[in-house]
């Protein structure tokens, strides 16, 4: 449904996208996962025909982003990173406006946004500028869907959003997917990768890896340990000095230690005990996307 082939884009000296390639199949929920500055927004602007690539090809449902830009604009739903609705129009007015621009009506496609809009209904007379963050996001998604797009492009919809609203948002995306919509979504939250069918991990304009989140996690090349102890920060410092460590990172109140395959639990435990660490709990664990991402970054 979406093809991206060898896309390059520079701003002056800065290479924002370096030969980016990946494909999104019809009906997939596809994640573009990476921190700020990875080039995610630049790619979205190219796919939505708002920016031209320096070189490379991209198509949406077979339509070329350069030649067929008018057709593409009609068939994509786009939610930019910055809230881009009219702040001084009400919820209702915004929705009507976007429906009218795309020559349709809210009534005609109401079934598409029914679940989401229900949560907004009590505030329909409120100005968009006066909504809370979570509500703004729901309205922006409704406006992106109201013309029945074939492809949905969401640029960091959950940045600055609290954990509960994030979970609700992803539940909405899953529901839309069940209705057959193809969605490309970008996020700096690595835990959200696990909610996608397939992901591209991106950094500094380059793809680090493309695969299903399960396969990416399984391909972690080291042994990974979760270590809990009395003082996590102290233990982290001590583990950074461990001879057989590949990396040691804090994960909340535990440390994830990556080692060579021949390291065993006893070796880590005796090392920590020697250093005076108390209340040690060591467990071999499966890597997550964040472990993989940091390993690829180094």
């Amino acid at each position: 449904m979406i093809t991206v082939q060898n896309i390059n884009k520079s701003y002056g000296q800065v290479q924002a996208l370096k030969s980016l390639s990946f494909n999104v199949e019809e009906g997939q929920l596809y994640g573009l996962i990476g921190p700020d500055g990875a080039g995610k927004t630049t790619l979205f602007r190219i796919l939505t025909t708002l920016l031209l690539a320096d070189s490379g090809e991209a198509t949406l449902d077979g339509l070329d982003v350069k030649k067929d830009y008018k057709k593409i604009r009609k068939m994509v739903g786009y939610m930019p990173e910055r809230f881009s609705l009219y702040m001084d129009l009400t919820v209702e007015e915004n929705l009507n406006f976007f429906a009218t621009v795309f020559q349709t009506t809210v009534e005609e496609n109401y079934h598409l946004i029914h679940d989401i809009y229900q949560m907004l209904e009590p505030f329909k007379k409120r100005k968009a500028g006066d909504l809370s963050g979570g509500m703004k996001q729901k309205l922006a998604l409704s406006c992106a869907l109201i013309h029945k797009p074939r492809v949905l492009l969401l640029d960091e919809p959950t940045t600055g959003v609290d954990p509960v609203s994030r979970k609700e948002f992803w539940e909405m995306l899953k529901k839309l997917q069940q209705g057959g919509l193809t969605t490309l979504v970008s996020t700096p939250f690595l835990d959200e990768a696990e909610l996608c069918d397939e992901v591209a991990l991106v950094q500094n304009g380059q793809i680090l890896k493309v695969d299903t989140p399960q396969n990416i996690a399984l391909a972690f090349p080291h042994k990974l340990w979760q270590i809990k102890s009395k003082s996590n920060y102290k233990t982290l410092k001590i583990l950074k000095e461990f001879n057989q460590k590949i990396s040691a990172f804090a994960f909340g109140n535990v440390v994830h230690l990556a080692t060579d395959l021949e390291v065993n639990e006893m070796m880590i435990e005796s090392y920590l005990k020697n250093k005076g660490v108390e209340q040690i709990q060591i467990q071999a664990i499966q890597a997550g996307i964040e472990d993989v991402f940091m390993d690829l970054m180094q």
Partner: peptide
Amino acid sequence: TSGVDPITRR
């Protein structure tokens, strides 16, 4: 740290 990469966040 909103949007910051995982290593820099740490």
